[in-house]
Computed example of a mutant assay.
Amino acid sequence: MSNFTYTLIQLHKRLDDQIRGELKQRVPDSFKLLRLKKLRLRIKDRLHASMRRFQPA
């Protein structure tokens, strides 16, 4: 696993934790959740793209 892939995985995990924490709030901030979820999706897309690049044909 490359450093780039490891960093993306760590970022994705951190965003998951932040989303879970926000959802536990009495009144979750919907705009913050939307921003975090969009960022998490961008990280996931980049992670999948980098994985496809390294798979043998």
Rank of each mutant, 00 (worst) to 15 (best):
29 D>M: 08
55 Q>P: 01
24 K>Q: 15
40 R>P: 00
53 R>E: 10
45 D>N: 12
6 Y>E: 13
32 K>N: 08
44 K>A: 06
14 R>N: 10
5 T>A: 11
48 H>K: 15
52 R>N: 08
34 L>S: 10
51 M>I: 14
41 L>Q: 14
31 F>Q: 14
26 R>C: 07
13 K>H: 09
33 L>M: 05
14 R>Q: 13
34 L>D: 09
21 G>W: 03
18 Q>S: 04
41 L>S: 10
57 A>N: 07
6 Y>N: 08
48 H>Y: 12
46 R>M: 11
54 F>N: 11
47 L>I: 05
36 L>C: 04
46 R>V: 02
12 H>W: 10
25 Q>K: 15
19 I>V: 13
53 R>V: 05
42 R>E: 12
15 L>Y: 06
17 D>R: 05
18 Q>P: 01
27 V>T: 09
32 K>V: 11
49 A>K: 05
44 K>P: 01
7 T>E: 13
16 D>K: 14
43 I>N: 03
35 R>T: 11
3 N>P: 06
41 L>F: 08
21 G>S: 14
39 L>V: 03
17 D>Y: 02
31 F>P: 00
6 Y>K: 13
47 L>M: 08
44 K>C: 03
8 L>F: 02
20 R>G: 12
32 K>T: 09
56 P>T: 13
55 Q>N: 12
44 K>I: 02
54 F>L: 11
28 P>N: 01
55 Q>A: 14
49 A>F: 03
55 Q>M: 15
24 K>W: 10
10 Q>V: 10
20 R>H: 12
16 D>R: 15
4 F>N: 08
2 S>F: 02
10 Q>F: 07
21 G>E: 14
54 F>Q: 12
50 S>W: 10
17 D>N: 09
26 R>T: 15
43 I>H: 01
27 V>H: 06
46 R>S: 10
20 R>P: 00
9 I>S: 08
42 R>I: 04
24 K>R: 15
42 R>Y: 05
48 H>M: 13
12 H>L: 07
11 L>R: 14
30 S>D: 10
10 Q>C: 10
48 H>R: 15
39 L>W: 01
21 G>P: 02
49 A>P: 00
11 L>P: 00
39 L>T: 05
11 L>H: 10
35 R>K: 14
11 L>F: 05
